[in-house]
């Protein structure tokens, strides 16, 4: 089964990467946040075992690492979807009606605030306080791509496009 092999090879690579990251930051507990960021880039979230491993190697208590990981909005302790859709709800976007866009996205994907990720792990929908692209309000970001002057219709069209694209694969 090449699929399994691929997965385990990936897991090994990821773990090696974690060790590499820890080495790069010289196991310095002050660098916890950049370490977590780099590790999250690798796994796309922060698995519990990896956090425990990081805590041990930095000489911090696991509770402290967990506390930091749960404090910052960027850290995810649950896996996120392949496409992370972030809708800006900063002031400018809000007054220019970002919430209807959010509602439309959630409705299209069957998601809610409590359930941000689709079961097929394709989409995660979240809000973000401000992306600083207020001139283009309301703004939606798909992974790192910024889309401005969003409307519910446009947003749903993007989703449909991605789904169609994924289905082709």
């Amino acid at each position: 089964m090449p699929q399994t092999l691929k997965k385990t090879t990936q897991r090994l690579r990821q773990f090696e990467k974690v060790c590499e990251i820890l080495d790069r930051y010289q196991h310095d507990p002050m660098k916890l946040i950049p370490i977590l960021q780099a590790v999250q880039d690798e796994y796309r979230y922060l698995p519990e075992e990896v956090l425990a491993y990081i805590a041990t190697s930095l000489g911090l208590s696991p509770a402290r690492v967990y506390g930091v990981a749960t404090f910052y909005a960027h850290f995810a302790l649950e896996p996120k979807g392949k496409y992370i859709i972030r809708l800006c709800d900063g002031t400018a976007c809000h007054v220019k009606k970002s919430i209807p866009v959010l509602d439309a996205l959630r409705e299209r994907l069957g998601l809610s605030e409590e359930k941000p990720t689709t079961p097929d792990m394709l989409f995660t929908v979240e809000t973000v306080s401000c992306l600083g692209a207020c001139g283009l309000a309301p703004v939606m970001v798909i992974n790192d791509e910024v889309h401005g002057q969003m409307t519910p219709e446009k947003a749903v069209a993007y989703i449909d496009e991605i789904i169609a694209c994924e289905e082709k694969k």
Partner: peptide, 23 residues
């Protein structure tokens, strides 16, 4: 250094805590 998503880190002492790897 990149922040990790917390508005309160705009406050000086919180920003420092964050730079020191804390909440």
């Amino acid at each position: 250094m990149e922040g990790a998503g917390a508005f309160v880190c705009g406050e000086e002492t919180a920003l420092i805590a964050s730079m020191e790897g804390k909440r």
